[in-house]
Design a protein around this nucleic acid. Sequence first.
RNA 1: GCGCCCAUAGCUCAACGGGAUAGAGCAUCAGCCUUCUAAGCUGAGGGUUCCGCGUUCGAGUCGCGGUGGGCGCACCA
Length: 546
Amino acid sequence: MKRAHEHLRAALIAVLRLLGVAEPKVVLEKPRDAVHGDIATNAAMMYAKGLGKSPRALAEQLTALLNLDRKLILRESIAGPGFINFEFSPDYLRSLATAAIRQGDNFGSDDSLAGVRVLIEFVSANPSGPLNVVSARAAAVGDSLVRLFRARGAQCNAEFYVNDAGNQIRLLGESVLARYEKRLGNPGAIPEGGYHGEYIATYSGSLSDQYGTRFHEQPHDQSVVQLGEMAVEHFVRAQRNSLERFGVRFDHWFRESELRRRKAEWGVLDELRRRDAVYEKDGATYLRTEQFGDTQDWVIVTSDGRATYFLPDIAYHLDKYDRGYDHIINILGPDHHSFTSKMKAALRALGRDPDRLDVMILQHVTLLRDGEPVKMSKRAGRLIEMDELLDEVGTDAARYFFILRRTSTPLDFDIELAKRQSDENPVFYVQYAHARIESIFRRAGVDYPNGDEDVSPLSQPEELSLLRTLRELDDVLDETLGSRDPHAMTVWLRDVAAQFHKFYHECRVLTEPVELQTARLALCRATQIALRKGLSLCGVSAPTEM
RNA sequence: GCGCCCAUAGCUCAACGGGAUAGAGCAUCAGCCUUCUAAGCUGAGGGUUCCGCGUUCGAGUCGCGGUGGGCGCACCA
């Protein structure tokens, strides 16, 4: 889908070389205003000074020397301070329709990232309760990124880090046991820092039904350990179910307990010591993160000899590095601001290249109901859970809404708006375009076009604009992968749907003579393929009827 | 106090490594269905891109300094 761009770039570079530019860098961009054409370059303005010419004079010279394939680029013109604007040939645009039909589900995909290994860690919620809405946002963003990387042929893995070790799991066990004892009518108190959520009580209840008084009778410590482990498995399973329901599947659930079993955190400590990156103070062991670029030093071993969370986390990231990924991407919630500088400093201290690690911090999700903030679910005392949200608005609307804004901005999620089936709802606008196309095929009673159609009758402005927009999927993939943010996909989908609705309004399909009808059916089919592809990259369905 | 993120139309947001007259949707107002889904389309109004200085042919975009908001700054995870 880059044929015209690649051709133009090569032609411009050749001409600039001819004029004496040693290593020309050519920037091609889409003009903001469509009247300026399809592709613009500022090359004449960039190199005018160096070549001792005025930008416009250089632009004249460049265009005179350019040897362009008119099947791809129809014409060029010089404008403004020295821009050169190029216009796609209509034949090139039309060829995109049949190409899309032949590519089908592979439309927009290529192997430009073949051989690149990418690891994306996301959600990684504590296994002590159900997933909340921030986790849901992370799931939507992370999974879409995985799909986008794979569309470019990268070997991309999704990973969930399970914090199933350490003090918090003991607290979880204590909390479950306390609720369990209460249920049996025995005294039991949730410890300080323990878990009070109602889901703990629900889970404890199911235990007393299933196991009777067993955990009351055996030694306290044994019960705490067992119940902690059982609760972890219970909540991990529940989280996995919620995520699968959301269309999100992880390749690997990485267990912190596995690291601890290998004593990986202590191996890291040894290596840090060897590199003289730690010191003792007040009985605790500090990592010299400040020396390696953070704003402060951090404790990695407490004065009573326990590793803090940070140490096994370093071990975990070292493990990611050792697995040989080219890009290691973390998607974290808004309460992890300190993570990036901290972890990069630790990696630097260990002699690793911190640039391989890319940390995306997601901003908050504010749930609204008709504009009013909702903090608690109907069942009191608890944040809204991901499952409750899915019950109300469904997977499609939820996934789309979560990537509708850039990850760097807080997201207002209006539950009533997401449920509303109207023009205010951006998901339905896009899905409606897809369903509308299907209804044409239903009504026509014809087979889908196979890509051999003669599309030369397509010449209306609406038809050509639609084709231009379809081509841009390629640019959208570049952008989403570069920014590690799928949000641009929703902008493009809206644009495709809008261009289609305009076409639909201006151009009839089924009532036209057969040549035109055939060409327009091909265009409709290409649009449908593009919409389905874009939606599937977001994990959203493309309904054929609405 | 230190750090990260954000600030664009009444509201929610776009604007692809700096580009030409800053665009959509919602809301408001005015139109369009005996013809393929009106969950749609067309048009109108609406802006000192938070402020100031700087960098340059050119700044919403980059730099510095402010202002306002969000969030972090544990021998918790």
